[in-house]
Write a protein that binds this DNA or RNA. Structure first.
Length: 551
DNA sequence: AGTTTGATTGTTGAC
DNA sequence: GTCAACAATCAAACT
């Protein structure tokens, strides 16, 4: 499994993805959300699924791989590393027990039935060079091909993980869902993801009262809609699309809507009836809610505006109004909660500018996470959001096609929709990520991150947990928990975990400084970011270029 | 005809 | 005239 024997590796067991997939992915919308509505089985998070298909590497806006991390341009990406300052990953090995290698946790359902191990030797850290011999369960390229996506070269890890993607499927969706339901119910205070914060517009231009434009009624003859009016529930397919597209886009930022649409359609097609039922049920539930909301709305309308104007002039009690897409804003100002949420779905970087960036400037840099801690989030931790449907389908068999893709070395064309019967698998266990220094002799502090994605809604697990600095702590595996092990090999010059004499980042010989964010392993945040970026890039390269081997 | 997302385009009001 | 803000439109596939 670990080629190279002693080399460090990154091992992810269980449904890896949350962490891995994301390149952005690291964001994953669906990561753990909480059930808002309580239908534990109804949330699927495809988000991550796709992440695997695609590539991390698309060049982001900046085109420079490192930007995200260092510059903090890409929050999602950045966040991925920020908190993992202490390690350098030389070799990555991903072990998944139940998830597809890269499929998001949510998607894991698709492949969850079969444990798989992905070993990705990173013998050569050169991004882009790692390609040869890695063992990965799934060949990214193949998947991509399957999906018909044009994957970018792995080299540039940056972007895919845009804030957008972050917010998308999950956050936004849920938020939207929430809003919808909120129409009837009192506004809730939602914690929105960073993504949401980032993407949001300054704040509701309350003033922008001037609708810069003509009455909507535009071409399609749409009538002006009362913002307070409950929105009709969307179709099961729409829900699925919503959950899935973000992940697809996250991995393949360059994918056009059409491509994404096709992929989603393909996935939908591959989705088992049971899984579709999950969505359908969700839709049904939404419909019921809608009807109730509508009734309440109408009642309200009658009360507040008995006159004929009802149709044209929303009576609006200053309630939660669904803002235009372009101006969506977090329900509440970014604050600690926001940050926390961000963490929920991402590994948090401690670079303030990265994690706290906000157009509104409403939120301030948060205190960096405790040393050696990786915050992996599961949205559920704090967000009321409901988990994406895919997540909820954890018990359902993986879609045939996906499954097939996962297991077949040379998957057939997309068109071919092999039907495979998958066995139901238990819900994904809590995610655990361990950073295990496996390096030859250098051992860095292992970090264990556990995000308990407790199925039980009422038990909001700690956001991050971690830290087991002892080198030996690597073996820990939770019975059902997803475990991610990051066996990190430190650079040759890296000193012992406890007291490195020089900065861990390769090429940096500065003296490490004390920081609550790391154990005296780095000399600065920049080094932390750079180091993480390099590692990530290497990882991306591997993912993107090589095939994976399923074990 | 409506839904999904995001980019683009067009319109409007404010400077 | 420029800019910002926002709505409309478009893509493919599905309900």
């Amino acid at each position: 499994m670990f080629p190279g024997g002693s080399d460090s590796y990154l091992a992810i067991s269980g449904e890896a993805h949350h962490f891995l997939s994301s390149s952005d992915t690291f964001h994953t919308p669906s990561l753990g959300d909480e059930d808002l509505d309580l239908d534990p089985d109804s949330a699927l998070g495809v988000s991550d699924v796709v992440s695997d298909f695609g590539e991390l590497g698309e060049d982001g806006p900046s085109g420079v791989p490192g930007n995200a991390v260092v510059g903090g341009n890409d929050p999602s990406f950045a966040s991925t590393f920020v908190s993992t300052p202490s390690q350098s990953l030389e070799h990555l090995s991903l072990n998944q027990q139940s998830g597809g290698p890269m499929l998001g946790p949510d998607l894991s359902q698709f492949s969850s039935s079969s444990p798989m191990t992905i070993d990705v030797p990173l013998s050569d850290m050169n991004p882009g060079l790692l390609g040869h011999n890695q063992l990965t369960t799934i060949d990214q390229s193949e998947l991509s091909a399957q999906l018909g996506l044009s994957l970018p070269r792995p080299q540039s890890p940056d972007q895919p993980l845009s804030a957008d993607s972050l917010s998308d499927s999950l956050q936004d969706e849920d938020v939207d869902d929430f809003r919808r339901s909120a129409l009837v119910d009192p506004p809730l205070s939602l914690s929105v993801s960073l993504a949401a914060s980032l993407s949001e517009q300054p704040a509701v231009p309350a003033s922008s009262a001037a609708p810069a434009h003509k009455g909507v009624g535009g071409k399609k003859g749409k009538k002006k809609k009362d913002p307070n009016e409950p929105q009709k529930p969307v179709s099961a397919y729409a829900l699925f699309f919503r959950d899935t597209q973000a992940a697809i886009k996250g991995q393949n930022p360059s994918a056009t809507f059409g491509e994404v649409s096709k992929i989603v359609a393909s996935m939908w097609d591959s989705l088992g009836e049971e899984q579709k039922q999950v969505y359908k049920r969700k839709t049904e539930a939404a419909k019921k809610e809608y009807l109730k909301a509508l009734a309440a709305y109408k009642a309200n309308q009658l009360q507040t505006q008995p006159s004929i104007e009802v149709l044209d002039a929303p009576v609006s009690p200053p309630e939660p109004v669904t803002p235009p897409r372009s101006s969506r804003i977090p329900v509440h100002a970014p604050d600690n909660n926001t940050i926390t949420n961000i963490c929920t779905s991402n590994i948090i970087l401690d670079l303030p500018q990265v994690t706290t960036r906000s157009r509104t400037g409403a939120h301030k840099p948060q205190a960096p996470p405790p040393a050696n801690k990786i915050l992996i989030s599961k949205q559920q931790l704090q967000s009321p959001r409901q988990p994406p449907p895919l997540q909820q389908m954890q018990n359902t068999p993986p879609p045939p096609r996906l499954q097939q893709m996962l297991h077949s070395p040379a998957p057939p064309p997309l068109q071919a929709k092999p039907r495979v019967i998958a066995t139901a698998t238990p819900p994904p266990p809590p995610l655990q990520i361990k950073f295990v220094p496996v390096a030859q002799s250098d051992v860095s502090a292992p970090i264990i991150v556990t995000t308990a994605e407790s199925p039980a809604a009422e038990v909001p697990p700690p956001t991050a947990i971690i830290t087991d600095l002892s080198p030996t702590a690597t073996e820990e595996v939770t019975e059902e928990g997803m475990e991610v092990e990051l066996n990190v090999s430190l650079t040759p010059d890296a000193p012992p975990a406890d007291a490195p004499s020089v900065c861990v980042r390769a090429g940096c010989n500065n003296t490490p400084i004390e920081s609550k964010d790391w154990d005296r392993e780095y000399c600065s945040n920049e080094c932390v970011a750079t180091h993480c970026r390099d590692v990530f890039m290497a990882w991306c390269a591997i993912r993107g270029q090589n095939s994976t081997t399923v074990t």
